[in-house]
Design a protein around this nucleic acid. Sequence first.
RNA 1: GCCGGGAUAGCUCAGCUGGUUAGAGCGUCGGAAUCAUAAUCCGUAGGUCGGGGGUUCAAGUCCCUCUCCCGGUACCA
Length: 673
Amino acid sequence: MQNKTKYLVTAALPTANNYIHIGHLVGSYLTPDIYVRYRKLKNDDVIFISGSDEYGTAIEMAALSQNVTPKEIIDRYHFSNKKAFEEIGIEFDIFSRTSNEIHHKTAQEFFLNLYNKNILVQKTEKQLFSNKEQRFLADRYVIGTCPVCGYEEARGDECPNCGSNLSPLELINPRSKITGDTPVVKEATHFYFPLEKYQEKLSEWIFSKTNWKQNVINYCKGWFKAGLRDRAITRDLDWGVKVPLEGYDGKVIYVWVEAPVGYISATKELFIERNQPHKWKEYWQGENTKLIHFLGKDNVVFHAIIFPAMLMAHGDFILPDNIPANEFLNIKGEKLSKSKDNGILVKDIVKKFDPDVIRYTLTSILPENKDSEFEMKDLQIRNNSELAAILGNFINRTVVFTKTKFENKIPERGELETADKEVLNFVKSQSVLISEHLDNFKFRDALFEAMNVARAANKYFNDSEPWKLIKDNKKRCETVINICLEICHSIAILMSPFIPFTADKILKTLNKDKSDLKWDKAGEFVLKAGTELGNNEILFPQIEDKQINEAVNTEEQTDVKTVVPENVISIDDFKKVNLKVAKVIECEAVPKSKKLLKLKLKVGDSEKQIVSGISEHYKPEDLIGKLIVVVDNLKPSKLMGIDSHGMLLAAKQNGELKIVTIDGEIDTGAEVS
RNA sequence: GCCGGGAUAGCUCAGCUGGUUAGAGCGUCGGAAUCAUAAUCCGUAGGUCGGGGGUUCAAGUCCCUCUCCCGGUACCA
């Protein structure tokens, strides 16, 4: 039986403890979406699978720290992220979630399969247990004194002060990060997956791949070189998929083994929805299926090594055909990744910019081979000088010409001249070239070549000069415009994987349904002469500087996450600054100055005078009696001839300024640290 | 510390196993055109390929070394 190739495309399961940001989007979701849309245009048999990863310590901790149930956490982020994906046009066949019953069942079956084959190994280890919380504490969530440097807020996995790698058992005075409870040492038995045994098989398999991206191969090489280690695959937690064995109450399957099984569960769920409950097997067990995992580089080890090893051990499923992992997207030097929770959220940016403009921009700077840089201004540049100027303009000039010169009806096409044939051949050959790029996961190149169709179309329009033909050779003019309109349709086809919303708009303008929106129809004639065109709209309005500035500013304001500043200092550096509490006893404006106030302060037993540039924000009488914070040992200076022996602290933002005051009563001269 | 990756035109990036004058897009500058969102089309200028050393007839491309950036991993026990 010769079966047609099936494509099973997965996108990394986003953890439902955070809103997805454009780093996630570019790393794991945009490229598979483009790929799948392209496959569908080619009439390939493809399904696109993803869903929320809803277990793991991160979610439990998010729930504890926000004082809500884990269920509330996962619901919030699952539905929000699902919506964000829809808004940006990521069109999954199914976006499931690992809290679904079918996933529990599937993951447990998987576990039992390995257990029954005696593949799993049991080991006993010492761990920290909180009696108060009635659970074992994850490494990151234990705090204590670092045995190396004495820093009191060291974490169980590492010390942020001296950089030492630690284990929670080494911490002096360990305590739970969440409740502060002092944990006790307790033995715990866990199942391990013997990854070490699979190293040879895995490396043979991976090194046999000739079409994998070099960065992915390199990551694997690194792991192999270090030697694979057995990994625990159970945890003592409530929140997760239960270990399906008697006598193992309170144990769940560790998220890194359970989550990837979610791809299988979601596929089952999809075909139950489609009333073909057994069809999932054709994808996961069929020889002719290409399983393709899309993800960011942080996920390579799970998809290229751990999950394949599990699949090998299980034996009933196919292995991935390719893992086209992306690198990271940086934002003006800031790092974006799953582990560092900061960035521009998808749910926010779709409210400020056309989703297709975002998709286009991100695709054109995709971190395919190495980390790449993004800034808001890129959206403006890509929109104004590429989408609007080249693509939008071609559609618009063609449609407007038809409207004003041909009563908005598609003109008849006469005999073709060389230029006509050339441009049509070019469109056709580009469709082949773009195909090749997409087949090889070269999305930037593919998009660039798609854009070249619009460039060529503009040139054809220019060279043909229909605005002159209309005066002395109407027949010829009709042919040219007919062809331009046909090219508009071809552009809709070739661009639709990248900017699907725009493709739809173009079809509407052409008054055309989707029946010819097929890859093979690019460069072909599909329009009917005489058809009246639909409404014309400007596809890509200019993005003004103002919009960019506003977007950048609101981004900074909404970003409440922890960001590591650029110039970190040691605590010793900080201690060089003497901060003290001071009381304002006198205060007056400095004459003729614009912003200066002269303040007399009581600091402990002494008085001091400082000059501060805050009169636009505070009146002298507002300040008298207030307890504020001053830098006591600042080098004295003169401002408008007045001595200043320090400075007060104040917060400033967008022209607003608020001074730092003391909450409650304390003696002046008290040190601030 | 160790392993891996990166450093190429003003900006964002391509450059496979070493081989003619190092490429693209955007931006710059000049010209053409005026149907079109002052958009298009044609042309121009721009780089000691992070520094230094080496191999070779020939190196952005291989080797050594240094600097800076990014990942991973370890030093603890």
